[in-house]
């Protein structure tokens, strides 16, 4: 609800801005991922109040964002799944992670609340593969001594639309389960072996709420705002951890960004005592060579402002800001990679 009102407010603000005869108003255009849209929109609103620069962000989906930047119709694209380094090279693009979030498995089992059910990585994968079909399966019981699990069919709920959330979730399952990797794979939409499909996070959340004995996966913010029963997942260190901002940041801090070429880094299944295993970042894409360095500088100024002044806003919407060490690295990359036509750096 909060997000909807906000989106309307931002849209209204945008309309007012467009109607006002301000000639000098600078506009930055971006398009792409829907997952970070609420936080980009709220950043844009605050940034516009402070600087007068307007951000026009179309949340048309990651695939659309990549298409738009390739067609050069926008100043930046946004994608929930990072582009592979060789692909970036091919199109002369660069990318960096801007904001993080987590994907959270949620369940609807009578008598089981948030943080009560524990699942190992293998069990989560086997449930989504349709190999574990009952909640009182001995393998689930083994993780949950003392928890009263009903003899009930498991209904799997997944996304019906292609989405970055599914990309992150299936990336994790592919890492932890060989069977998943071979049978299903890692993509924004996959051939699900079992289950129902809901449209969007809200669709999955609604199905999980309606169907007794179901399990689905949603973005952290949705799980939190809808008071859904999230599960504790076993991470690489062997600990059962809860989905919290601190544990998402632990996953990002533990990641080896320095050696990730083109920031191609997926934050699933990261090392670290407290790392939440299904963490993901949303990425920004820009051309390395900028025909209009002044415009590119405006884009970078906005994201720089977001890194340094936008953390509170991000946290208020249940997103996770990038850790400071990673921000420093990213701004260093801007200096070394983004050039104008004469080879001078755009960001100083």
């Amino acid at each position: 609800m909060k997000k909807t009102i906000l989106a309307i407010a931002v849209a209204a603000a945008g309309l007012l801005g467009a109607a006002a005869p301000v000639q000098a108003a600078k506009v930055i255009n971006g398009a792409g991922a829907t997952f970070p849209y609420p936080v980009y929109a709220k950043w844009a609103w605050s940034y516009n109040k402070e600087t007068g620069v307007r951000l026009n962000y179309q949340s048309i989906g990651s695939g659309g964002g990549i298409k738009q930047i390739k067609a050069r119709t926008v100043d930046f694209g946004a994608s929930d799944a990072p582009m592979k380094p060789e692909e970036l090279e091919k199109f002369g693009l660069m990318q960096w992670p801007q904001i993080m979030g987590g994907v959270v498995p949620v369940v609807h089992i009578k008598g089981i609340g948030a943080g009560q059910l524990r699942l190992s990585a293998a069990n989560l994968a086997d449930i989504f593969l349709g190999k574990i079909t009952q909640w009182d399966d001995p393998r689930i019981k083994a993780n949950n001594p003392g928890l009263n699990l009903p003899h009930q069919n498991i209904t799997v709920v997944h996304r019906a639309d292609g989405s970055g959330t599914t990309w992150i979730f299936t990336n994790y399952l592919s890492k932890v389960s060989q069977a998943w990797k071979e049978q299903v794979g890692n993509a924004k939409s996959v051939p699900w072996p079992v289950g129902l499909g809901g449209k969007g996070n809200e669709g999955v959340a609604a199905f999980v709420k309606k169907v007794n004995g179901s399990i689905g996966y949603v973005e952290y913010a949705y799980a939190l705002q809808n008071h859904m029963a999230s599960v504790l997942l076993q991470n690489r260190a062997g600990n059962f951890v809860a989905p919290t901002s601190a544990n998402f940041q632990a996953a990002a801090a533990g990641a080896d960004w320095k050696h990730a070429k083109g920031y191609y880094m997926v934050l699933t299944d990261q090392p670290g005592e407290n790392s939440w295993p299904i963490t993901g970042a949303s990425f920004i894409l820009m051309y390395k060579v900028q025909d209009n360095p002044a415009q590119a500088r405006e884009v970078l100024k906005f994201f720089d402002w977001a890194f340094h002044h936008g953390q509170k806003i991000a946290e208020s919407l249940d997103y996770v800001p990038m850790p400071d060490t990673v921000v420093k690295m990213i701004e260093q990359t801007w200096k070394s990679t983004l050039k104008d036509k004469n080879g001078h750096p755009v960001w100083k």
Partner: peptide
């Protein structure tokens, strides 16, 4: 059982068909 229709497939998958 759950199924799918042509129109709902299009509505679901068009935006992210890359």
């Amino acid at each position: 059982a759950p199924g799918n229709s042509i129109a709902s497939t299009l509505a679901n998958e068009f935006t992210e068909a890359d």
